Amino acid sequence: MIEPFRIAVPQADLDDLTDRLSRTRWPNEVTDAEWDYGFPLGRLKELAEHWRTRYDWREHEAELNELPHFTTEIDGQNIHFVHVRSSKPDALALVLTHGWPGSFLEFLDVIEPLSRDFHLVIPSIPGFGFSGPTHERGWDIVRIARAWAELMRRLGYERYGAQGGDFGSGISTALGAVAPGQVVGVHVNYLPTAPVPDAGIELSESDEARLDKVGQLLANRPPFQALQALTPQTIGYALTDSPVGQLAWIAERFAQWTDPRSPISDERMLTDISLYWLTATAASSARLHHDAPRRREPCPVPVGVAVFAYDITQSVRPLAERLYDIRHWSEFDRGGHFAAMEVPELLAEDIRDFFLTLARTHTE
């Protein structure tokens, strides 16, 4: 059963957030620390004060409620999603999947341009946001992909495309693998390509530089990733109890993974962080790092890739082609890991080009 959903956070939860922020116990910081020890104290205090005194959740809640929200239960798990229908009745449907530390909010600025040509289904990953916490083991990328296939079936879509970045990229390619008869293609804006020794593939100097960057990341695993992959419950206690802890945990990612020329506004970032805080999904969202496979399975449907200059890593096409049927490849000199929020016009146009080209190919 699919039911309409309206966001209505209890006022007591908002009052509790304000109270906790006012009683923050701050650590000290060494002189001239900047980013050498982690998120700078001065900047975090500025964000916390903004959150406590100027940020208005009710204003953003009202704007979000202008979208058509729904929930349904799949495989014993509540699933929240936004469903925006195009004015074109025969439009192709797209399922858009966010990652961590994002949410369905990532896609707010691409809804209008994409809905001109596509029906849009934008779910919240189980364990994230309004889908609520997961309650059992096993909600990995493939299980989520199967849930998305069931969701699209319930909505009556027999053929559709999939798009995503971060975890949304892995879920989208997994969806192409579990439902190849329904998925016409997959577009991603994040596609890790690890070095393959003795693969016999000739790589350019720029490709080798990209692999060096991947090697450095693999050798120096980011602390957040290690903690969420190994002990998500442990870090979840701190993040669920301290709003400033949750703030620093996510704001650091937005600061380090975005193009400095296209920063995400504090208001948008605080709305995303508020979503994690108000739904108490810090621990359950972190579990996806624990449960996600360390490698990707081949995807049998056509794939389009958008590579953004300031993403965590940049894909290497010759290596991507070993696993995927690459039909579309775009390189952008702007934008980072949160492309849908940073450069929505570039991402939306690339998604449109890929899927409309696929649609024309199918009709010829």
Rank of each mutant, 00 (worst) to 15 (best):
Q225I: 10
T31S: 11
V214C: 03
I250G: 01
A145C: 04
G236W: 03
L14A: 11
Q11L: 15
V188D: 00
R294I: 04
E3N: 12
I74M: 09
T271F: 04
E61N: 06
H135D: 13
P126R: 06
D140N: 15
E349D: 13
P260E: 11
A280G: 10
L270A: 03
G156R: 07
R210D: 00
T31W: 12
A280N: 15
A309P: 00
L319T: 00
G168L: 06
A199N: 02
I125N: 07
M341F: 11
S22W: 08
A286Y: 04
N28C: 02
P243C: 06
R322T: 13
S315D: 00
S124T: 12
S204I: 00
P123H: 12
I144Y: 05
T363I: 10
R268T: 13
D266P: 01
A93T: 10
S131F: 03
V121M: 04
A179I: 07
R54V: 06
R58M: 06
D19V: 05
E136A: 15
R154H: 10
E202S: 04
R43M: 13
R322F: 00
E331F: 04
V142K: 14
L275K: 03
G127A: 10
E345A: 14
V305F: 07
D13G: 03
W100N: 07
D353T: 14
D259C: 09
G181D: 14
S103P: 03
I264G: 01
P263W: 02
E208C: 08
S206F: 04
K45E: 10
N189C: 11
N189G: 05
E63L: 14
L319V: 00
A309N: 09
A162D: 10
T363R: 14
Y237L: 13
E208K: 12
L108N: 01
P192Q: 01
A194W: 05
H50A: 11
R327S: 12
L114E: 06
R317C: 01
A229C: 04
E46H: 12
A348G: 11
I111D: 08
P263C: 00
E29K: 02
A62E: 15
A12Y: 10
Q11T: 14
V303L: 14
F70A: 13
R334W: 06
N78V: 08
L120Y: 13
R58L: 14
V9F: 09
A292H: 05
S172P: 08
P123S: 11
M1E: 14
A251G: 03
G215H: 09
V30N: 11
E63D: 12
G129V: 08
Q256V: 13
L114N: 09
D56H: 13
E202P: 00
L217D: 02
G304D: 02
L120C: 09
L247F: 04
V343P: 00
D311L: 13
Y37R: 10
R143S: 07
R23Q: 14
V30Y: 08
R116N: 09
A320C: 12
P4D: 06
A309D: 12
A199L: 01
A147Y: 06
A309M: 04
L41N: 00
F118G: 02
H187C: 02
V305I: 15
L44I: 14
Q182P: 05
T313P: 02
P10S: 11
L227Y: 07
E158A: 12
H289G: 03
F167C: 02
V178G: 04
Y160W: 15
P263V: 01
P40R: 03
V30G: 12
A339M: 08
